[in-house]
């Protein structure tokens, strides 16, 4: 028994504590819209099952909405509740909108009086929030991008231009033009460069009503491209992450860049 506990404790130190324990997501009320000035409501949450509000809201700091002309627009009616945040977008111009929740934080593990502790926050707060007596401090730069896409009228691509920072997805197939039975193709970029050999996990929503998760893992090729043929219609979540030594902050040795997107696949 004792051995088991010791083994478990040792294991716990090796496994990085990460956002991986839960899934973070954005959920749009619709991704394909017609008519004049349509609106969408978008929910943001962290949960185990997709897409249910059951754990924590995603905070909306870091929300960046790019309009079809490349300009940034502001959300309306934003609020954060117990299990989810929500906001509306008025799609005043036709075209494709990119909705992103961007996080640029530091994550630290340290010991205080022999006790293992963790901290997550803005880089400027690290020094004041971790006690001076802390030892074994390991700081990681956590760079996160959560996205979804909606289109009013005809899909276009101006809002999809790569940001060039962190891990992101450059659509080859338009992200609001996905149909069950079709194969979609996307490219992962890390700091604007193709990200080869990265594993991408793809999960269809509606987990609560089935017994098996049915997650699919695909890998990007040497050009950073991955392909997936949608087996059926639904709201899908995909996620990828990479670690390297390109932390943006001097306090951190390692960077963990993650990307997740919610994509809607419609029936033929």
């Amino acid at each position: 028994m004792k051995t088991l506990i010791r083994a478990a404790a040792a294991l716990a130190l090796v496994i990085p504590v990460s956002a991986h324990a839960h899934r973070a997501w954005l959920l749009p009320s619709a991704t394909v819209l017609s008519g004049k000035d349509p609106a969408v409501t978008i929910d943001a949450a962290v949960s185990n099952d997709l897409f249910y509000f059951e754990h924590q809201p995603m905070r909306l700091d870091g929300l960046v909405v790019t309009a079809p002309d490349g300009s940034k627009i502001e959300p309306e009616n934003a609020s954060t509740g117990k299990y989810r945040s929500t906001f509306d977008l008025s799609l005043k111009a036709p075209g494709t909108y990119r909705i992103a929740l961007v996080g640029n934080n530091l994550f630290a593990r340290y010991k205080e009086n022999g006790e293992q502790k963790r901290w997550r926050g803005k880089p400027e707060n690290l020094a004041k929030e971790i006690p001076a007596s802390a030892t074994d401090v390991v700081v990681t730069h956590a760079q996160r991008r959560l996205e979804t896409f909606v289109t009013s009228g005809n899909p276009d691509e101006a809002a999809l231009k790569p940001v060039g920072k962190g891990l992101e997805m450059q659509p080859i197939t338009h992200p609001t033009d996905l149909v069950a039975g079709d194969e979609a193709e996307f490219k992962l970029l890390l700091d604007g460069q193709p990200a080869p050999n990265v594993e991408v996990e793809i999960v269809r929503g509606g987990i609560r009503y089935r017994n098996q998760l049915g997650e699919i893992k695909v890998s990007t090729d040497k050009d950073g491209v991955f392909k997936y043929k949608w087996p059926e219609a639904g709201m899908y979540w995909l996620e990828a992450s990479v670690s390297d030594d390109k932390a943006e902050f001097k306090e951190a040795k390692e960077r963990r860049a993650s990307y997740a997107a919610t994509l809607e696949v419609l029936p033929e």
């Binding site: 394909v32 819209l33 017609s34 008519g35 004049k36 349509p38």
Partner: peptide, 9 residues
């Protein structure tokens, strides 16, 4: 309400 085109999709 001139919303007929909202459902064209």
């Amino acid at each position: 309400k001139q919303e007929g085109d909202k459902w064209l999709k």
